[in-house]
Write a protein that binds this DNA or RNA. Structure first.
Length: 554
RNA sequence: GCCCCCGUAGCUCAGUGGAUAGAGCAGCAGAUUCCUAAUCUGUUGGCCGCAGGUUCGAUUCCUGCCGGGGGCACCA
């Protein structure tokens, strides 16, 4: 619709210039907007305001010249008016909206999809939690944001790969192994103290118990280093498998799980350090090897090899991101917890130093989740091993509620997640509000089929019955969906789809209470069945982008 | 001290430079002989944190301050 109006304005401007009403033929890019106030029309353009300067005319004069030369070949317009400082407002005829509904029926499950990305290869890496403990609520938010973002990008014409980076190397894995081994010894009756810097959670004891069940006391007699390593490997593998299962239960399936350790095993880390050396961006100091990231905008230089000879996490991350771009991704998007924001400049520096445009590497920062129960904070302490896991939350509130609620805020905002609200089957719970639309419409369609009046396909002529303001309002809302998805993809903001669905749901519930679908007039009934079938399709498509189910019965 | 995010109605939050800033919740008053009341309708409620700047136009962009949260390792 916007593109049609843009053409219409373009032609009017050319005609006005040809007729001498506008002196210059260079017209700046004008916006077509949906005004906030209904009295300002269905669409509005600031053409006259932006063109005023180059035309050396008052905005309202420009607007008048343009309006006088508008041709309307498709018969879209009921009327146009000039308002305020020089806005041109377009009021469309009811029939002008029907093609939007036709598009929903025509495209079905693909409605909302676009070719925005033109096949651009994008990788979305998210969650990537250390395999040292189960996923908690914060990871859930990252999972919901990352997975939804990937779905939205895929629907927008990008070739998307979802990846999980397993930090299965380094010190925290050593600590994990040590923690399990100590618990293992305790279970065997040894009186060993359990240090504070070890992982405290009960799951460590469970892992130790499993190892004893398998190997008995065998690890007691093994070399210390050997024992730690075997415990570490077992624990990391088991925890990773558990995370994979939790994520699958959450509706998140990764295309690839990428091991940090593999970067060492294949010599990638060493190779990328050598490459940095060849570029002259690293230097030795105080026995360590430093990367001069400050030359690329970071606030200080960073260590890549410690003075004990061990590489830092940063070193393997450099290798990892280099390797990502070598795999041919045009864009690499990482979803990180906001507590890692300080890491962005050095990662950008690393990308740039590798000869890749740093704009191709983007980070979505996701703010914290405050877990509440009935308005009161739920106490959580990773240190003491007390936390509510993602799995616990899913068991309590269900997958759909969890995913949806995680996406009811901009990623930039901290999120209050109230377990009691998430369970409620009331107005307070946004996910049911949206799903209820799908169930309600399904119910009407079942009833219609029972009376032999089922929806039989789009009928352009019959649809002209849809002429009340309520009908048109609903169709307009459906028509916004594609641009919402596109904006969401462009701005990397999945919550836009959530808010749109709440809007659409409100529009439908309102419609439902004001208009009847199943009436005594067969033609009107058929037309309205085609309308609500379209609404159901869009609800379904939108929920699919969020990874939330669309139930037929509630 | 430096960096990032937030600050918009009583509460929780939308708002990619446009006109009279919106929604939900809470409060108040209503709606179902009829397609699912997990719904709807009406209504009260604002110095868009403060001060400058850019612009025809700023809640939106820039700078400084104030308040809240997070981060500033040869941990990850």
């Amino acid at each position: 619709m916007k593109t049609l109006l843009k053409e219409l304005i373009r032609h009017a401007a050319d005609r006005a210039h040809a007729a001498g009403a506008l002196p210059h033929d260079l017209f700046p890019e004008a916006e077509i907007d949906v005004p906030k106030v209904e009295a300002h029309g269905d669409y509005s353009t600031n053409f006259a305001l932006v063109a005023a300067r180059s035309q050396k005319m008052a905005p309202r004069q420009v607007a008048e010249a343009l309006c006088a030369h508008i041709a309307d070949p498709h018969g879209l317009l009921a009327r146009t008016e000039i308002a305020g400082p020089g806005f041109i407002n377009f009021f469309l005829r009811p029939s002008a909206w029907l093609p939007l509904l036709a598009a929903v029926h025509d495209q079905g499950p693909r409605y909302g999809s676009s070719d925005l990305g033109r096949g651009t290869k994008v990788q979305v890496e998210f969650v990537s939690s250390n395999p040292t403990g189960p996923l908690h609520v914060g990871h859930g938010r990252g999972a919901a944001v990352g997975d939804s973002m990937a779905r939205i990008l895929a629907a927008s014409g990008y070739a998307v790969q979802k990846e999980y980076y397993i930090n299965d190397s380094g010190r925290q894995i050593q600590t994990l192994g040590r923690s399990v081994l100590l618990r293992y010894r305790q279970l065997a009756g040894e009186a060993v103290s359990f240090p504070e810097d070890c992982y405290q959670g009960d799951y460590i004891v469970d892992l130790a118990r499993e190892l004893r069940a398998r190997h008995g006391d065998a690890l007691l007699t093994a070399e210390e280093a050997e024992g730690v390593m075997r415990c570490a490997r077992y624990a990391a593998d088991t925890i990773t498998a558990g995370m994979r299962q939790d994520l699958l239960d959450f509706g998140v399936a990764f295309d690839r799980w990428y091991s940090e350790q593999s970067l060492y095993d294949t010599g990638r880390v060493e190779a990328s350090l050598e490459a940095l050396q060849a570029r002259g961006v690293v230097y030795p100091q105080d026995g360590a090897l430093w990367f001069n990231t400050s030359a690329f905008g970071d606030e200080k230089d960073r260590v890549v090899v410690r003075n004990n000879g061990q590489t830092t996490y940063f070193a393997s991350d450099i290798a990892y991101h280099q390797e990502k771009f070598e795999r041919g991704f045009d864009r690499v998007i990482d979803v990180w917890g906001a507590d890692h924001h300080g890491y962005i400049p050095r990662m950008k520096a690393a990308v740039q130093a590798s000869g890749v445009d740093p704009a191709r590497f983007e980070v979505i920062l996701v703010q914290m989740v405050n877990l509440l129960r009935g308005g009161a904070p739920v106490a959580m302490s990773t240190r003491a091993g007390e936390f509510v896991t993602l799995s616990d939350v899913m068991k309590e509130v269900g997958r759909d509620a969890a995913r949806f609620i995680f996406l009811t805020r901009s990623a930039d905002s901290t999120l209050d997640f109230d377990l009691e609200v998430a369970k409620q089957k009331t107005n307070d719970n946004p996910v049911f509000y949206v799903q209820y639309v799908h169930a309600r419409i399904s119910s009407i369609l079942r009833k219609a089929e029972g009376t032999g009046l089922g929806f039989t396909g789009w009928d352009a002529a019959g649809a002209t019955c849809l002429d009340t303001p309520d009908d048109i309002q609903l169709i307009k809302t459906l028509g916004r969906f594609p641009e919402i998805v596109a904006a969401s993809a462009r701005l990397l903001e999945p919550h836009r789809v959530t808010f749109y669905l709440l809007d659409l749901a409100a529009a439908f519930h309102s419609y439902y209470n004001r208009q009847r679908v199943l009436t005594d007039a067969p033609a009107l009934t058929r037309a309205r069945l085609s309308l609500i079938t379209g609404v159901r399709q869009v609800i379904r498509n939108g929920l699919e982008l969020l990874g939330v189910s669309a139930p037929d019965v509630m």
